[in-house]
Amino acid sequence: MGHWLMDTAGIGSIIVLAVGFSILVAYVYMLRWIQAAPPDPVLVEAEAGDEEAFAAQVGGDKA
């Protein structure tokens, strides 16, 4: 089995491509994970113009 894996034409290509491709996918996932990070909550709410939510977050202890 070991010899067959090492000595067969094409198996080496599959190993190289499989390793390369899985790493590429992992890296793309990492980039998308960074891209998908939510913006800071304060900014979102403030831009939305929801003053109550803004107060709840920024001035939560005012009451």
Binding site: M6, D7, A9, G10, S13, I15, V16, V19, Y27, M30
Partner: peptide, 28 residues
């Protein structure tokens, strides 16, 4: 051809693997 008929006993294929991973990783 090494990506079609690649034969893993050859150290060139080890180079292909490691340099490929290194190129992807260093790009990132």
């Amino acid at each position: 051809y090494p990506l079609i008929w690649g034969r893993y006993q050859s150290p060139f294929l080890w180079d292909f693997t490691c340099i490929g991973i290194y190129l992807l990783s260093s790009t990132l």
